[in-house]
Computed example of a mutant assay.
Amino acid sequence: MSLHEDAVLVLKSYEDQPELRRLYLDHLAAHPDGTWKACGAGHLTASALVVDPERGRVLLTLHKKLGMWLQMGGHCESGDVSVAAAALREATEESGIAGLTLLPGGPVRLDRHPIPAPCHWHLDVQYAALAPADAVEAISDESLDLCWYGWDEVASVADESVVRLVEATRARL
């Protein structure tokens, strides 16, 4: 199964955000390359909010290019066998934490946001990744910093899209 086919199946089974879900599916139907960065009309990205539910906290990255506190995530790559695998790879690479596992049940949220040309949109498929009890984070080349924040602290450092992802993750937990 191709990454494109997997993305369509994942989105068809996702039951929340029906209008945005339809927009993603329409985009993939119109763009066979819609999972790749090269798709100038916009493309899927995959991200994961790294969570430590036992301690009531999430790990955010201070994104090097954007200067914003965000969940881990990025572009799908040719070796990714699924959107979930892409999200888990990105979370592992950017957090430095080995042994992350995705929260069961598929994506937690979808978030479509504009980006500068030559592309125009990121259609982010957002998961949650559970950190093991002994998790030790390590800053990657894509990040200026990593920091654990309590559930209720996120709103003071991150934008609304991250706050909504945290809220949806807590509801799923």
Score class of each variant (00 low, 15 high):
residue 1 M to N: 13
residue 3 L to G: 10
residue 4 H to A: 11
residue 4 H to P: 13
residue 5 E to N: 14
residue 5 E to H: 14
residue 8 V to N: 03
residue 10 V to A: 10
residue 11 L to D: 01
residue 11 L to A: 11
residue 13 S to K: 15
residue 18 P to A: 11
residue 18 P to V: 02
residue 18 P to N: 05
residue 19 E to S: 10
residue 21 R to P: 11
residue 22 R to F: 04
residue 23 L to G: 04
residue 25 L to K: 00
residue 26 D to S: 15
residue 28 L to H: 00
residue 31 H to W: 04
residue 32 P to S: 06
residue 34 G to Q: 03
residue 35 T to W: 03
residue 35 T to R: 00
residue 36 W to K: 13
residue 37 K to N: 09
residue 38 A to D: 15
residue 39 C to R: 12
residue 39 C to F: 07
residue 40 G to V: 04
residue 40 G to Q: 13
residue 40 G to L: 14
residue 41 A to P: 11
residue 42 G to W: 12
residue 42 G to Q: 13
residue 44 L to T: 13
residue 45 T to Q: 06
residue 45 T to I: 07
residue 45 T to V: 11
residue 46 A to S: 14
residue 50 V to F: 02
residue 50 V to M: 06
residue 51 V to W: 01
residue 52 D to R: 04
residue 53 P to K: 07
residue 54 E to C: 01
residue 55 R to W: 02
residue 58 V to S: 00
residue 61 T to C: 06
residue 62 L to Q: 02
residue 62 L to V: 04
residue 62 L to E: 01
residue 65 K to A: 07
residue 66 L to S: 06
residue 66 L to T: 01
residue 67 G to T: 01
residue 69 W to Y: 07
residue 69 W to L: 02
residue 71 Q to N: 02
residue 72 M to S: 09
residue 72 M to G: 01
residue 74 G to R: 09
residue 76 C to D: 00
residue 77 E to D: 03
residue 78 S to N: 09
residue 79 G to S: 12
residue 79 G to N: 08
residue 81 V to Q: 10
residue 82 S to L: 07
residue 83 V to D: 02
residue 83 V to H: 03
residue 83 V to F: 03
residue 83 V to M: 15
residue 83 V to N: 06
residue 85 A to Q: 10
residue 86 A to I: 02
residue 87 A to L: 14
residue 87 A to Y: 04
residue 88 L to S: 14
residue 88 L to M: 07
residue 91 A to F: 07
residue 94 E to S: 02
residue 94 E to L: 10
residue 95 S to Q: 07
residue 96 G to F: 06
residue 97 I to R: 00
residue 99 G to W: 05
residue 99 G to R: 07
residue 102 L to D: 13
residue 103 L to Q: 13
residue 104 P to W: 01
residue 104 P to G: 03
residue 105 G to R: 09
residue 106 G to A: 03
residue 106 G to T: 10
residue 109 R to A: 12
residue 109 R to K: 06
residue 109 R to N: 08
residue 111 D to W: 10
residue 112 R to V: 03
residue 113 H to C: 01
residue 113 H to N: 08
residue 116 P to Q: 11
residue 116 P to L: 06
residue 117 A to V: 03
residue 118 P to H: 08
residue 122 H to Q: 15
residue 123 L to W: 10
residue 123 L to Q: 07
residue 124 D to N: 15
residue 131 A to Y: 00
residue 132 P to L: 08
residue 137 E to H: 05
residue 138 A to R: 15
residue 143 S to Q: 07
residue 145 D to L: 04
residue 146 L to M: 12
residue 147 C to H: 15
residue 147 C to L: 13
residue 147 C to F: 06
residue 148 W to D: 12
residue 149 Y to N: 01
residue 150 G to H: 14
residue 150 G to D: 13
residue 151 W to R: 08
residue 152 D to E: 15
residue 154 V to Q: 00
residue 155 A to K: 13
residue 155 A to M: 05
residue 156 S to D: 15
residue 157 V to N: 00
residue 160 E to M: 12
residue 161 S to E: 05
residue 166 V to H: 01
residue 167 E to S: 12
residue 168 A to K: 09
residue 170 R to C: 10
residue 170 R to N: 08
residue 170 R to Q: 14
residue 171 A to V: 14
residue 171 A to F: 05
residue 173 L to E: 11
residue 173 L to T: 10
residue 173 L to Y: 08
